[in-house]
């Protein structure tokens, strides 16, 4: 079956005063209809850039984009800003990290949801308002008839994110891109929002790209995970595979450095060093300077050659050591222990 969305070898560079910032360096991603995939990485890994590139938000900016984004057979990168409009909101909905700044402060929540509906549906103002009320009810806002006339600042953080979700889903898009939607929220509110997204996803069967830095959120919500580092996908597999058999040294490092509630480890195992500087990427593997396996891979390959993304049993890994079978189960660094 043809995937619904496929991103191939996507590169995005931003010109700055200090030079070109390479935000994406050959990103790959595929997504099937109705599937929920988690895009995981730390700051600067390119996870948000990926989601915004899919939405075409870098069109008409100074960003230099190369590669391929195919959505239902259409090359989205080739579309003009105007030709992209029928996709935005209608076929692809998007929610953002901070719902307070993502909503217009001067319009009511209801007006903003109704507007999102009216862009793509020829209906009267009154009908659109009713749609907004219904949608607010569906995302669990109590007393939606009254709340529809509130301004964003009159909502609590959790309710605002619910309203954002209502706005993104009002046209019943086939794909929902959620860009760190719970990062700014408290943990009990995050739990409510994750429940909501997962319920709505089951109800509408839309596909979801969930961008997050939290592996726990991925485990709870997603079927498949894409781990990003330095603007590349370094590992892609089912959630179960990733958690039981993490193969890329970075994925393993990430899991080992994560504090857990369960278990009784007193000491965390951090990844040494810091995330890569996107202004001057190494010519070899981007993770090499923080990777303990780079030393055991022969010919200094990790320092001189970018590894390819190798797919085996639906488990894709971008690592010389893994490719040469030099890293096995026994060399796990503390993951899951």
């Amino acid at each position: 079956m043809e995937p619904m969305l496929s991103v191939k070898n996507l590169t995005v560079k931003f010109p700055t005063d200090d030079g070109m910032v390479a935000a994406l360096n050959g990103m790959d991603l595929t997504l099937n209809r109705g599937e929920t995939v988690g895009l995981v990485g730390e700051s600067g890994s390119g996870k948000s850039v990926t989601s915004q590139a899919i939405m075409g938000l870098f069109k008409e900016s100074r960003a230099v984009i190369d590669g391929e984004i195919t959505f239902e057979g259409t090359d989205l990168l080739a579309l003009s800003e105007d030709a992209m409009r029928p996709y935005r909101g209608k076929k692809i909905g998007m929610i953002f990290q901070d719902p307070l700044s993502a909503m217009h402060p001067f319009y009511t929540v209801g007006a903003q949801i109704a507007e999102a509906y009216q862009v793509h549906n020829k209906v009267s103002k009154k009908a659109a308002r009713q749609v907004a009320i219904d949608m607010l009810g569906r995302v669990g806002i109590p007393d939606p008839k009254r709340r529809v006339d509130n301004y964003p600042h009159e909502f609590s953080g959790g309710m605002r994110q619910r309203a954002m979700i209502a706005m993104a889903l009002v046209c019943e898009p086939e794909l929902l891109i959620a860009d760190e939607p719970t990062t700014a929220l408290d943990v009990t509110v995050q739990a409510q929002i994750l429940d909501l997204i997962s319920d709505l996803q089951a109800e509408t069967n839309s596909a979801v790209i969930f961008v997050t830095h939290d592996l726990g959120v991925v485990a709870q919500l997603c079927k498949r995970v894409v781990v990003m580092y330095g603007g590349q996908c370094v590992e892609q597999a089912s959630v179960r595979q990733i958690f039981q058999r993490p193969s890329h040294p970075y994925t393993r490092g990430l899991m080992a450095s994560m504090p857990h509630l369960a278990g009784d480890t007193d000491r965390l195992t951090p990844i040494p060093g810091s995330p890569p500087a996107l202004l001057a990427l190494p010519k070899g593997c981007i993770f090499a300077d923080r990777c303990e396996f780079a030393k055991i891979v022969p010919d200094g390959r990790c320092l001189n050659m970018r590894p390819e993304l190798i797919v085996e049993d639906d488990h894709a890994v971008r690592c010389h050591g893994h490719e040469l079978k030099l890293i096995d189960e026994t060399s796990l660094i503390g993951a899951g222990s």
Partner: peptide
């Protein structure tokens, strides 16, 4: 450069609406 302008674009609004209804108003 505000977040809500990005939201307006993500809704699929026309350029005119994005600039005048959302941008100028704010």
């Amino acid at each position: 450069s505000e977040d809500f302008m990005r939201t307006a674009r993500a809704k699929g609004l026309s350029r005119r609406k994005i600039v005048f209804k959302h941008g100028v108003r704010a």
